[in-house]
Simulated assay, not measured.
Amino acid sequence: MSTKNILLTVVALVVMAAVAYTLTSSDDPDAYLERVESERDKQFKFLKYNEDSPLSKEQKAALGNLSFYEIDPAFKIRAKMVAVEDRKVMELPMTDGSIEKYIKHSYLEFDLKGSPQKLLLLQSFNEVDKRNFFLAFADATSGGDTYGGGRYLNLRQDGKNSISIDFNLAYNPYCAYNPDFACPLPPKENLMEIAIEAGEKDYSVKKD
């Protein structure tokens, strides 16, 4: 399977998981924690056992766990979607110097722990389901606790002009595990000044 097809397959799996996660959302704190833990466990099993995992056989054998921040419900927020007036194609640079095409769809406006934020929401140029989106971001933890090239979220629109964002589900791109993979870098609009202490930490960070 080609690298492109592998990435498309994984994105599809993540989107389906996100849809199920959103549909089963409730205000019950324990149920919420269980759902996030379940998604993290699925991610670990994919990396550890799936043939499409970016990990080498040696890495799979050595992988005992992934490193995450503690689940913090404060990082699960609702954002207003403000449509980009002229939805042009954006050529997002990849870690290997190539480019990948996305549509500049909307700006996400929200408050996070009292700090107003605005991020650019992208849609894959070849996306069939127009309610599926891609968010690549970097923040004050990037290059420290988290991967220097940023982290990702696959989002699905669940409101007329709004969307749920749960940074507890933020995950690493493939190139965080294996430099042979090319990954999109976050656009300049998504370089956050605050620390997003939620989601997956850097694969290279020493595990406890």
Rank of each mutant, 00 (worst) to 15 (best):
P116Q: 06
L121P: 11
F110V: 05
L119N: 03
S124N: 15
L121T: 06
P116D: 05
D96R: 01
F110K: 02
Q123D: 04
N126A: 08
V128N: 15
S124Y: 13
L108T: 08
K113I: 11
L121M: 09
N126W: 04
E127Q: 15
S106R: 08
L112W: 09
P116K: 08
N126P: 00
Q123K: 10
Y107H: 15
I103V: 13
N126G: 01
S124I: 09
L120T: 01
Q123V: 05
N126T: 13
E100W: 05
L119H: 01
L120K: 03
E127I: 06
L112P: 06
E100G: 00
G97P: 00
Q123N: 05
Y102V: 11
L112K: 02
V128Y: 12
L120H: 07
K104R: 14
G114C: 02
L122Q: 02
K104H: 12
K101R: 10
S115V: 13
K118C: 11
V128E: 13
S98M: 06
T95D: 00
G114R: 12
Y102D: 06
K101H: 05
S98A: 09
I99C: 12
L122A: 10
T95G: 01
H105D: 10
H105V: 06
Y102I: 06
H105A: 13
D111S: 14
L119R: 02
Y107K: 05
Q117D: 14
L108V: 04
K113C: 07
Y102H: 12
L120R: 00
G97D: 06
Y102T: 07
L112M: 09
D111G: 13
E109V: 11
S124D: 15
G114S: 12
F125P: 01
Q117V: 03
K118E: 14
T95I: 05
S115A: 06
H105S: 14
G97Q: 04
S106Q: 01
K113P: 08
L108S: 00
